[in-house]
Design a protein around this nucleic acid. Structure first.
Lengths: 143, 143
DNA sequence: ATAAGAATAGGAATGATTTGCATTTATTAT
DNA sequence: ATAATAAATGCAAATCATTCCTATTCTTAT
């Protein structure tokens, strides 16, 4: 929302607070759905001189910190989104790419069970659902 | 298991039954976990002259047909696996990349519920769990 | 204000995947 | 069986997202 928050957040993580980083975080906060690197780059560049490599580097770092989500198939462009307070997954329309956030993930207890069974310390999971949104179902003659 | 099955399957789908395709399907059937294109290529090449592009082309086609799974993050190499009778997901070790197949997915009824709530026709989902396998947990001093 | 280290911009490099095309092969009709 | 023909293959070149390199510019602590 404002750059002061980002300043503090970045310093707290031992990183310098650069205009590019703040603009990047602001750009992410503006998105209502996972955005491609290109989208984010364009958004950041509207406010500050920047380069694609800077955007990539910072996104990757934010992802490693667990502050943002990264999703997509291999061979596709990655899409990033800020992590919300509540653990969230997405529902993606196969036709129009519309993305809806879904809440209420049933996987945590399952993760614990699987970890026990397989002798893993399960620390995270990724889940995405695919289908057709209402409009696209109609267009394609689906119910 | 045998090439006769693949012959029939391929013809039924309107495709020519080539040695490369049969070897590819056999290679996939041999894997007990999702394999990289490179792995599959090497396996196929043990039995027939082939090329990476042929492997790529056929894997992509099989995936489009819904006969195999494709998984991995963007920026990672894709991994493919034959679809089994039982819906399957994977558990991946963050350190050593060991992959374990896990069965018993609790997401189907959840998918139906989400679809109803969001007015989507949910047709598929992807889910992968991440953690540390027993060895790597020890190495890293984790419990 | 300055020094020291971190971060950036820009471009080159990488590497998985895709594509173009000439050749080979599996199918179908003869 | 053979020839015709459309599809599939192999190889090399192209693509394209992402990563890497490094000289220069900023941030921050002093």
């Amino acid at each position: 929302m404002n750059s002061i928050d980002w300043d503090q957040a970045l310093r707290g993580l031992g990183k310098k607070s650069t205009p590019q980083r703040k603009a990047l975080l602001t750009a992410l906060a503006l998105q209502d759905k996972p955005a491609s690197v290109e989208d984010i780059f364009v958004e950041v560049r509207d406010h500050h001189k920047t380069s694609l490599s800077t955007v990539y580097r910072n996104l990757e770092w934010l992802f490693a910190q667990g502050l943002i989500n990264k999703q997509g198939f291999p061979g596709e462009k990655a899409r990033y989104s800020l992590k919300r307070e509540h653990h969230e997954h997405t529902l993606v329309c196969i036709d129009c790419q519309k993305i809806v956030a879904i809440t209420g993930c049933p996987l945590d207890s399952y993760a614990a069970e699987v970890g026990r069974r397989e002798n893993f310390v399960v620390v995270d999971h990724r889940m995405e659902m695919y289908g057709y949104c209402q409009q696209c179902s109609h267009t394609r003659g689906r119910v």
